[in-house]
Simulated scan of single mutants.
Amino acid sequence: MARADTLARARELDRPDLAYLVRFPAAGGIRETDLTWAEIARDTAWIADRLRGHGLAAGQRAVLTASGFEGFWCHAMIGALRGLRVTYGIAEAMGWDHRRTSVFHRELRPHAVIGLSAETLEGLSGATDIGEMFRPTSVVLARPDAVPMLHAVGVPGCVLSPLGPALAVECPERSGAHVSAAEWRVGERDGQLSVAAGEGRASPLSETPLGIAGRVVTGRCACGSDDPRVLFGEANQLS
Results as ranks from 00 to 15, higher is better:
M1A: 08
A2P: 14
A4R: 14
D5Q: 12
R9T: 09
A10D: 14
E12S: 03
E12H: 09
D14Q: 04
R15A: 13
D17H: 11
V22Y: 10
F24Y: 12
A27M: 07
I30W: 05
E32V: 10
D34K: 08
T36S: 13
W37E: 04
I40K: 02
D49A: 14
D49E: 14
L51E: 03
G55A: 13
G59H: 08
G59Q: 07
A62P: 05
L64W: 09
L64K: 04
S67K: 07
G68K: 11
G68R: 06
F72E: 08
I78Q: 11
R82M: 10
Y88Q: 10
I90Q: 00
E92W: 11
W96N: 09
H98K: 00
H98G: 00
R99L: 12
R99W: 12
R100A: 13
R100C: 05
R100Q: 15
T101G: 11
S102A: 12
F104R: 05
F104K: 02
P110W: 05
A112Q: 08
V113E: 04
V113M: 08
G115L: 12
L116E: 09
S117A: 10
A118W: 05
E119R: 15
T120M: 07
T120I: 15
T120P: 08
T120Y: 00
L121Y: 08
L124G: 05
L124W: 02
S125Q: 02
G126V: 00
D129R: 01
D129A: 06
F134L: 07
F134I: 06
F134R: 00
R135N: 02
P136V: 03
T137M: 08
S138G: 07
L141C: 07
A142S: 10
P144N: 09
A146P: 01
A146N: 02
A146R: 07
V147F: 03
H151S: 08
A152P: 03
A152F: 02
G154Q: 11
G154K: 05
P156D: 02
G157M: 00
C158K: 06
G164R: 00
L167I: 15
L167Q: 03
E170F: 07
V179S: 05
S180I: 03
S180P: 03
A181C: 14
E183I: 04
W184Y: 14
W184F: 10
V186P: 13
D190V: 05
S194A: 10
A196P: 04
G198S: 06
G200M: 11
G200L: 13
R201Y: 08
R201N: 03
R201A: 02
R201D: 03
R201C: 00
A202L: 09
E207S: 15
E207F: 03
E207G: 01
A213L: 14
R215K: 10
V217I: 15
G219D: 08
C221K: 05
P228M: 05
P228L: 02
V230Q: 08
V230R: 12
L231E: 12
E234A: 15
E234L: 12
A235E: 14
N236G: 06
Q237T: 15
